[in-house]
Amino acid sequence: MAGRALGRPGGNAPYWFLAPLFAFTGLFLVLPLGFSVYLAFTRWNPLGEPRWVGTRQFEYLLTRDDTFWATLSNTFVFAGALVVIGVPLALGLAFVFSRARGKAAWRAIYYLPQITSFVAIAYIWQFVLDDRYGLANRLLGLLGFRGFDWLTDPTMAMVSIVMVMVWYDVGKNMVVFSAAIENVSKDLYEAAELDGASAWIQFSRITVPIIRPAVVFVTVTSFISGMGFFALILAMTGGGPRGATEVTALYLYEMAFQDLRMGRASAGALILFAIIAVLTVLQFRLLRERKA
């Protein structure tokens, strides 16, 4: 008894303290996830009973549903652009503002979109990017240009969505980078300056290698959130024009809640989950190898 008490002070108390967390996780994570996995092998609209169909939903999505593949392609473009454009931009801004006056104010300004509703953001940008009356094209018109079909041309619509998403996300990533940059010893920069290192050399040879964990974190989380994101797209373009901005998560949302195909949508979600998981592991390994 004495040995047991020594091995686990407080008896079962830790488990009692953890019990609410376990219950919450079970109720809101494990249970829905398990149900979703089950649904992926059924045909179910919530009006009736689920009917077991084995792997047919996966077969349909992977072999017959061209739209599913098109949305996956859109998803990779969206998530990829978010990482390729958004992460370096946030890093650059964080570095610049770390040396600027009023850096706290700049960071707050860039963080503002994060505390704004997606719907409000979508409406504002719709007004700015409207083909005929939008501010962007009006300004381009003053300069003698025709302007772009920002939200009605398939290519430009994706460009617009990425642009707005980068604008939305850059502040959050910048804050993470800023925190990491603040922890880099000032001595290193002073020594580099004494050796005549330019700001770019200091950034690329000192800052980036030291804050690599933050870069890995932001890259991976940006990619994951980009792969599963759709709220802004739903509010801004609804996936249009002609499916050009229809990402997989949005397609699955519509499949589940508009077309009432819960089984197929669950199967699609599992496929998307598997893709994200594999790519995330690959990203971690690649970035770790580079570190080594």
Partner: peptide, 21 residues
Amino acid sequence: MQAAEIEGMMADAIDSVIAGD
């Protein structure tokens, strides 16, 4: 059955014709 889904498909197809795609 699936009328809303089918009409969404119709809209996409007709839109692609209208856009010249």
